[in-house]
Design a protein around this nucleic acid. Structure first.
Lengths: 211, 211
DNA sequence: TGGTGATTGTCAATGTTTTAACAGCTGGAA
DNA sequence: TTCCAGCTGTTAAAACATTGACAATCACCA
């Protein structure tokens, strides 16, 4: 019933998947679910499912199982902010476009408020209804609008400098698609890396060695 | 000196990063590196670095360290195939475009040979120099060209069916951007998931709870 | 030539995550 | 009412991953 020890990273990484499956179930009209049913979907054990939820105080009812709607709501409260987090995007290239679209159509909890790029021909265009601004305006924009999250879609060479600039400007969270690795010197900053190259290399390794 | 026990997933996931850092060092003209220097870059311990390489037989020289060029070559051999792996892309939308570009410009070891989409207005166009074909031609194409890897950039609703079709057609490796989770029923299939939604949700959790 | 400092490969210890086991609760049937 | 099957919460054990420790090796120098 009480909040247990701080959930570990593996647990946190599983929460969105639970949330996703529960959403699908709710849409299908499923009302209750057991840990073993969830385990089957997740490809893990019932034990892990129960332990995961227990980190946050256990949302189930002994003898019954979990109420799908309630459990999903609770997970939602844990994962998402009450109101959309103001977010900016740096690098409006191909990947930047895809991610801006993703933020608008498929993500919840984030509100894209501006994009930035260095290419002169992009300035003034819009991206998912937000303007693409010059990098030189970054400072003034952040001072005024105080974005909390930045999506980094620039090449590695540019990333280090941009990251430092954004940190100095008060941005505290990064969804990082560049190959640049944020250093660990800033303890109060959160970074979620999507290293496509590493992901693809992992696939390559598996193809090479396991097929 | 001999090949140790099968490397675990965490080790494999670190290989691309080692490879990346070694590439940067080689470009800068660095000749040798010690486990503690690598550890510092990776944000881990020297012990782990040595243990990681030891899974594959230890590429260093006692008393000296590791030869940057040699180590990188060895890791490259482990990660990448000798010749480019024929690869197809399913779903030529925004994300598909970005990933096709990525495959061509920034990835090694994969050769995009065709893209497929359901939208009639896309058929006949090209994407990174490869044709965009109708989904109905998938079977014939695979029979002729035998792609090994498929990049899945379709919505979740479509993914399950496409995946099954591709598996039946002999594709054995998937770089999966859809929200569909490949079931575990096929043991000889490798899947590398890039669940953007889950990644973003993780970031959201951190923003919500750690900032 | 022999000593010294640096460094790897390897084994043992520690820490973390996952799995198993079981007491206690619940709803329904006999 | 009482029993039973099915389920959670929780504690304990097992598996796994990381870190620490140290002998063996090497280049260099006196």
């Amino acid at each position: 019933m009480s909040i247990q020890n701080k959930p570990s990273l593996p647990v946190i990484k599983r929460l969105p998947r639970y949330y996703r499956y529960l959403g699908e179930m709710e849409q299908e009209g499923v009302v209750k679910v057991s840990s073993s049913e969830l385990a089957k979907m997740m490809g893990t054990t019932a034990s892990q499912v129960r332990q995961d939820f227990n980190c946050f105080g256990g949302f189930g009812q002994q003898g019954i199982g979990y109420n799908v709607k309630l459990l999903r709501e609770e997970l939602g409260k844990l994962i998402f902010s009450r109101r959309p987090v103001p977010t900016i995007l740096i690098g409006a290239g191909n990947l930047g476009h895809a991610m801006a679209n993703y933020l608008r159509k498929d993500a919840q909890g984030f509100e894209l408020i501006a994009a930035f790029d260095v290419k002169p021909e992009m300035i003034g265009l819009t991206l998912c209804d937000v303007p693409i601004l010059e990098m030189s305006r970054l400072g003034a924009f952040c001072a005024e609008h105080r974005p909390k999250v930045a999506v980094i879609c620039v090449p590695r060479e540019a990333a280090a400098q941009v990251a430092q600039e954004l940190i100095d400007l008060g941005v505290r969270a990064f969804w990082n698609f560049s190959h640049y690795d944020f250093s660990i010197e800033y303890p109060d900053i959160v970074v979620e890396n999507v290293h496509l190259g590493d992901s693809l290399a992992t696939l390559s390794y598996e193809v090479n060695n396991n097929l």
